[in-house]
Design a protein around this nucleic acid. Structure first.
Lengths: 118, 118
DNA sequence: TGAATACTGAACCATACGGTTCAGTATTTG
DNA sequence: CAAATACTGAACCGTATGGTTCAGTATTCA
């Protein structure tokens, strides 16, 4: 048995699994945004958007601050480094496996040509 | 309003948001595995593991095949390319934003030194 | 053939998710 | 001060998730 558990990745991958939330990130890349502006853009109630922003916040992808009556969201400094690292590491291993297979296949073909028909 | 929706990414990010499922991928990188062997390794019932494998399958990350009474799981050929691309693209934009900020700060400092005390 | 193995499916459970409405509260603005 | 704006919180709803147990079914082994 092995104990796998990495809450930060749990939270951020879960946050990224929703199209609206990915959209919010895409929007924040172009500039900070209020709850109202996001609600307009994504055709959703303020409450709905607020919940999405909270999910992104809990995942550390977004930070918000309230000035007067307006809450502004912006991208968190933490960024997507940890997520990129997990994905990249495993992507390489995924591909390594298929490359290994390719290599075996190539080797087999090599052996075939080493052994010309007699 | 913009319509954001990308079911494949929804499914794969959701699949990756669970530590057990990331663990299963980590295991499959080292070789194909039966439901029973995964259940042993992750201290979970066969039924529980089977559900996780199904989630990974629906996301296209894993494929399975049953031979005799044993179902073997292996990594899907599709890999993590789309996920890596989304993350990388947005990571760069995340960082570009902070770099831009850094640049503005540097420019301000530049202007300060352009204007020596009189 | 009979027992052991490996999985499968249905049912259930508690909790979380994605969304809404509705009734506030706090902050501008005229 | 009154009205408009921007958000907030509670409550609710239907569905999904992560897990279990239990009762099969299909395969393999002795």
């Amino acid at each position: 048995m092995v104990q796998y558990s990495n809450a930060p990745l749990d939270l951020s991958f879960a946050a990224l699994s929703d199209a609206t939330r990915r959209g919010i990130i895409g929007q924040l890349v172009r500039g900070d945004a209020s709850i109202t502006s996001l609600a307009d853009r994504f055709q959703m109630t303020l409450t709905g958007i607020k919940k999405h922003v909270q999910v992104l916040e809990r995942a550390g992808l977004v930070v918000t601050q309230k000035v007067g009556r307006v809450r502004t969201s912006q991208l968190g400094k933490r960024g997507l480094k940890a997520e990129a690292e997990w994905i990249e590491a495993h992507r390489m291993l995924f591909e390594a496996r298929f490359d290994a297979l390719d290599e075996i296949i190539m080797q087999m073909q090599q052996e075939d040509s080493d052994e010309p028909a007699r």
